[in-house]
Amino acid sequence: MLAGLIAAATVVAIDVGHYLERPGAISAYGVTEFEYNHALAAVLAARLASDGAPVRLIGQRGEMADLWARPAQAETAGAGFFLSIHHDSVKEEYLQAWTWNGRALRHSEQFAGFSLFVSRLNPRLAESLACASAIGAELRQAGLSVATHHGLSSEGVARPWADETNGVYYYDNLVVLKAASVPAVLLEAGVIVNREEERALAGAARRALTAEAVRRGLGRCGVMAAP
C-alpha cells in the first residue's frame, strides 16, 4: 500500500464527464455518454461517502462547459484528489451502422474494457500514476479487461502507455488532468459502443463493481483508508 503518498485528502472530487449541450459519445443503444457518466459518478460518490470520505461532485447538473473550471472548482472545495468519470467509444473507422428501435445508430464489437489516463503536465504526476495504477489493478482483480485501442488517437496522436498492465495511458493535454493542482486521473469505465459491454455498463451490478474497485484502489494509494 502507498499510505501517506497523498497527504490529508479531505475531499475526493468526482467529475461527471461532458455536459448536456455536448454529451460525449452516443452508445450503441442511443444513450449519451453523459447519462452513463452521471449514473456511475452517483454510485461512486455514494460508495465513497459510505466509508466516510467527503465527496464533491462536479458537473453533475450538466452545465459545466468550461473544462478549466472543473479542476478549479475541485481546488476551491479543498479536494485532495480529482477523478473524472467517462465512458469510451472507438475511432470512426471501427464503427458500423445498425438500427435499434427504428433509430439509426452505430456500434463496434472490436474493442471493450476500461482505461485510465494521467497527464505528465500535472504537477502531481507520481501520485496520479500511483492511484491510476492502483485503480486499474483493482478493476482487473474484479474481472474487468484493459482496453487496448488508445495507442493512436483519431487525430493520429500517440497515447503511450504509462502502465500497460493496469490499463493506464498518458494523455498530457487533457485539460481536467493538466490543470488540476492535485493528483488527477480520468477513468473510461468501459466501451459503450460495444453492444454487449454497454448492456453490462447500464446495470447496477457493473456500476457497483466499478465503484468498489475504485474505492479499493484509492485505499491502496493512500487517498482513503485502506480497504
Rank of each mutant, 00 (worst) to 15 (best):
T148P: 01
A137S: 14
Q96R: 15
G136A: 12
N166T: 13
D15V: 10
V11H: 01
T148S: 09
P54G: 06
R159K: 09
L152V: 15
V12C: 03
E127P: 01
M64T: 09
M224Y: 05
L186E: 06
E196A: 15
A65W: 00
L139Q: 15
A9R: 01
A79V: 04
S153Y: 05
S84G: 00
I192N: 00
S115L: 07
E198Y: 13
S115G: 09
S181Q: 14
L174V: 15
S128E: 09
H86Q: 10
A179N: 11
V11C: 02
R56M: 05
G136M: 06
R159W: 03
A39C: 02
L116S: 12
L2R: 15
A41M: 04
I135Y: 00
E109T: 15
E164V: 07
A204C: 03
N37S: 08
W161D: 08
D88S: 06
L129S: 06
H86K: 03
F34D: 03
D15G: 05
L48H: 03
L2W: 14
N122L: 03
H150G: 03
H150K: 09
V182Q: 12
L144A: 08
L177D: 04
E196Q: 15
F114Y: 15
S181I: 03
A126Y: 02
N166V: 05
Y19Q: 02
Y171D: 13
W68L: 10
A45Q: 02
S153E: 07
R22Y: 08
L187D: 01
V31P: 00
E109C: 05
D163V: 05
A65I: 00
A42M: 12
G30R: 12
A49D: 04
L121R: 14
L116H: 13
V168F: 07
P183H: 13
G80V: 04
H149I: 07
G219Q: 00
I6H: 12
A25S: 13
G24Y: 03
H38N: 11
G222R: 04
W100V: 11
Y169H: 15
S133F: 03
G78T: 05
R61I: 01
A137I: 05
R103Q: 14
G24R: 04
R207A: 11
E138K: 14
T148F: 02
Q60F: 06
L57T: 04
S89K: 02
A112L: 13
I6P: 03
W68A: 11
R22H: 07
E75I: 04
A134P: 04
A211V: 10
A97V: 07
A72Y: 12
L186I: 09
E109A: 14
G17A: 05
Y94R: 08
Y169D: 11
G102M: 08
A211H: 09
A3Y: 11
H86N: 06
L177A: 11
A132F: 06
E93K: 13
P23A: 10
A42Y: 06
G59A: 00
D51N: 06
T148L: 07
L121Y: 11
